[in-house]
């Protein structure tokens, strides 16, 4: 009953049920991810509300150029990912591989820039709990410990985000391998589709992290 290219597992009635189950399973997983990041966002709201000046002082330490470039890179990677899923849906096997590789490269660029940023933070003694003596002379009313909270959240949130990116890069490499062997067809490309959802979700998290972490009180001049 199932078409030749579909791998139908025994407990499903038909391919449609199997695909449906996987898709809503993935969506539910993403909802758990929303709540997982949600705890961190809640902490962000609480402490930004309590220490607005300290958060501005911390935000000032970030490199806005890196942040903006990374945002653009991630949006590009979302486009290439969407195009990979599209290519799969219309059955262009070579294009799937091409777009997946582009996505992988863009993901790599993002992580590379992130690594440079982290390194700058390390050099600037701005890693809470490890070495934290930031230069905040411009803010006489701000306590160092409260800037530490900002950076704890910065590293917590971007770190968790980067971890998701790393996992994504691992999975996409696997998909490229499978796709290059022609595993995904117009009839069956569920893994590409589900991975696409994951990748876009990671992009969405960054869409919020960027203004919340990088763009605080930018108008007061850097």
């Amino acid at each position: 009953m199932a078409s030749h290219s579909v791998t139908l597992r025994h407990h499903f009635e038909n391919a449609e049920q199997q695909k449906d189950a996987s898709t809503i399973g993935m969506w539910m997983f993403l909802v758990t991810e929303i709540m997982f990041f949600g705890g961190l966002f809640m902490a962000y709201i609480a402490y930004r509300g309590a220490y607005p000046e300290a958060f501005a002082a911390g935000s000032e330490k970030l490199n806005i150029v890196y942040g903006t470039i990374n945002t653009l890179v991630l949006i590009c990677s979302s486009l290439t990912m969407a195009m990979a899923v599209h290519s799969a849906a219309v059955g262009k096997k070579k294009m799937i591989v091409l777009f997946l590789i582009l996505t992988l490269i863009l993901g790599g660029v993002f992580l590379g820039i992130k690594a440079v940023e982290y390194h700058d933070k390390y050099v600037g003694h701005e890693i809470p709990g490890v070495n934290f003596h930031p230069e905040i002379d411009g803010h006489p009313n701000v306590a160092v410990q409260n800037v530490s909270l900002y950076f704890a959240l910065y590293f917590g949130m971007t770190g968790l985000h980067a971890m998701h990116m790393i996992v994504g890069v691992g999975m996409i490499s696997f998909l490229i391998f499978k796709a290059s062997r022609g595993a995904y067809t117009a009839e069956w490309h569920t893994p590409v589709e589900l991975f696409g959802l994951y990748w876009h979700f990671v992009d969405i998290v960054w869409i919020f992290l960027f203004p919340l972490l990088y763009l605080i009180d930018l108008h007061q001049g850097r």
Binding site: M35, G39, P128, G129
Partner: peptide, 24 residues
């Protein structure tokens, strides 16, 4: 599905706090 992730990240933060004293 909806509630467990929140406690997971909370306990993670508590573990980080205990390990690194980040002050959260």
């Amino acid at each position: 599905v909806l509630a467990t992730p929140v406690v997971a990240v909370t306990l993670l933060l508590a573990a980080l706090e205990r390990g690194l004293h980040i002050g959260i």
